[in-house]
Simulated assay, not measured.
Amino acid sequence: MALPLASAPREPVAVPAAVRALATDDDVTPVWRNQLGGLTFRLVGAAGTRYVKWVAHGTPELDLAAETARLAWAARYAVVPRVLGSGRDEDGAWLVTAALPGRSAVDPAWKARPDEAARAIGAGLRALHDSLPVDACPFSWSAQERADRLDAAARERLGPIPAVDRLVVCHGDACAPNTLVADDGAPAGHVDLGTLGVGDRWADLATASMSLGWNYAGDHEAAFFAAYGIAPDAERIAFYRHLWNLG
């Protein structure tokens, strides 16, 4: 099984000069590290709370311009971070967003209540899929396009693509940390939409349910699928998890 792609920093993090400049007098806290090299910082000051994503040059997989465009589009239909600014210098690129209410579904408070967290993730994903209009979405997350980006050996291992169950606008990285949860357990919003696009809903369902095992003790998939309102589809789950791991 693939490892989760990001986690809270466990060691000291050097704050890039651009983030320091953006912060001015704000308190700066590193809150997330992506294994591809991306960092997320929380800035807290008199004007409120902001988040800054920063990636070093040379990490093209982390396309902040793509995420900026997707956030701007999705914000018309769903609760996602509002873009406050972006930029780049000789060291890297950054994206600044406003904070949303709620806490990540992998906050310690929710890791201690994993069934409730799983239900919030499932309900939040269903709400996202129901609210984002497929016909108006200019972005793709189709299995065919993702498969076409694999090398020949990986594409052969993947096998045939299942027929589409239902096209939705997929989150694209529906892992547990990317759902925000309100104090009452209701889904409060979504973050990290850099690969949002139209695809089969099982692309998100398979990844989200797989990520529960990375983040919570025990098996909470039943709570997740019940909250989404669907029975697990073993064939599509296996395919889309395999595609995720190969990608």
Rank of each mutant, 00 (worst) to 15 (best):
D91M: 00
W73H: 15
D233E: 12
D135E: 14
G159R: 08
A152H: 14
R113I: 04
A72P: 04
D184C: 13
R113M: 09
P133N: 09
T68H: 07
A206N: 05
L125R: 15
W110M: 01
G58L: 03
D25A: 14
R149Y: 07
A206V: 15
V79D: 15
W73C: 08
R70D: 06
V13L: 11
A223W: 00
D233S: 05
T40V: 15
D27S: 12
D192F: 02
A47G: 04
N245A: 15
A17L: 13
A18S: 13
G185R: 08
Q144G: 11
I237K: 14
T40Y: 04
V96A: 02
V168I: 10
D89Y: 10
T68P: 02
G197I: 11
D89I: 07
E61Q: 12
T49H: 09
G58I: 00
A109M: 11
G247S: 14
E61R: 12
A234C: 08
W141E: 06
W73P: 13
L205T: 02
R33I: 00
R149L: 07
M210D: 00
Y51K: 04
G213R: 09
L100S: 12
R113W: 05
A208K: 01
D173M: 02
S140T: 13
A112D: 05
R82K: 13
L205V: 03
G85I: 08
W244A: 14
S142A: 11
P133S: 11
D192C: 02
R119D: 14
L5M: 11
P81E: 09
G199W: 10
N34S: 13
I237D: 14
M210F: 10
A93Y: 00
P9Q: 07
D27F: 03
Y51P: 08
T49V: 14
D25I: 11
N178Q: 04
V80P: 07
W202T: 09
P162F: 04
P162L: 03
A105W: 06
L205A: 07
R42I: 14
A231M: 00
V55Y: 11
A93S: 12
P9C: 06
G48T: 10
R42N: 14
P60S: 00
S7P: 05
V79R: 11
E90L: 07
